[in-house]
């Protein structure tokens, strides 16, 4: 069982990763590389589709498939590897991806929660509900920011804006 923190609520995750034994699934996350290998198969597949990204993947390679996707899972396998932050911002801002952006991996700790949200994350994948609660609390630590963030997350005070 896996849990998702989404809009301050912790729920069981209804998505499955390709290769997990729970099949048949109606909502499936496939690796970005797999999606690029067999695009016809996945575009034709009937269920809801998500893609997972590792830090080394270039977001431009996923871009042609974004229209088909309801979800992108950006992974942070180790704490301190910040490439996922750029992937998130490009997805949310440059490519205006409107589906779910979830943060996954052992590197997702409460310390990064507010940064991830500012970059556009709206769901956190966790193994245990208490991890989700810690992340939810951490999201409340700051109510100010200097930089513009993902459009859906206003703060009480913000310094710099996006160009009009």
């Amino acid at each position: 069982m896996r849990y998702i923190l989404r809009q301050r609520e912790i729920q069981p995750d209804h998505w499955h990763y390709l290769g997990e034994s729970h099949a048949p699934a109606s909502a499936l996350i496939v690796p970005g590389a797999e999606l690029r290998r067999e695009p016809e198969r996945w575009w034709a597949w009937s269920g809801r589709l998500g893609a997972s990204l590792t830090p080394i993947e270039q977001i431009e390679d996923l871009q042609p498939h974004l229209r088909r996707l309801d979800l992108v899972a950006v992974s942070f396998p180790v704490f301190g590897d910040g490439r996922g932050f750029t992937q998130l911002r490009l997805l949310r801002q440059r490519y205006a991806f409107a589906g779910e952006l979830r943060a996954t991996g052992a590197g997702v700790t409460p310390e990064l929660a507010h940064l991830l949200v500012r970059c556009g994350v709206d769901a956190f994948e966790v193994a245990r509900p208490e991890q989700g609660r810690a992340l939810a609390r951490a999201c409340e630590r700051y109510d100010v920011a200097y930089q513009p963030g993902a459009p859906a997350v206003p703060v009480r005070l913000q310094r710099f804006r996006l160009p009009a």
Binding site: G80, D81, G82, F85, T86, R89, L112, H114, L115, L116, R118, C119, Y142, A145, Y146, Q147, G149, R159, F160
Partner: peptide, 13 residues
């Protein structure tokens, strides 16, 4: 200084 302070994208370079 302000722009770089806890920059959401560039704090784990």
């Amino acid at each position: 200084r302000q722009w770089a302070t806890q920059h959401p994208e560039f704090t784990y370079l």
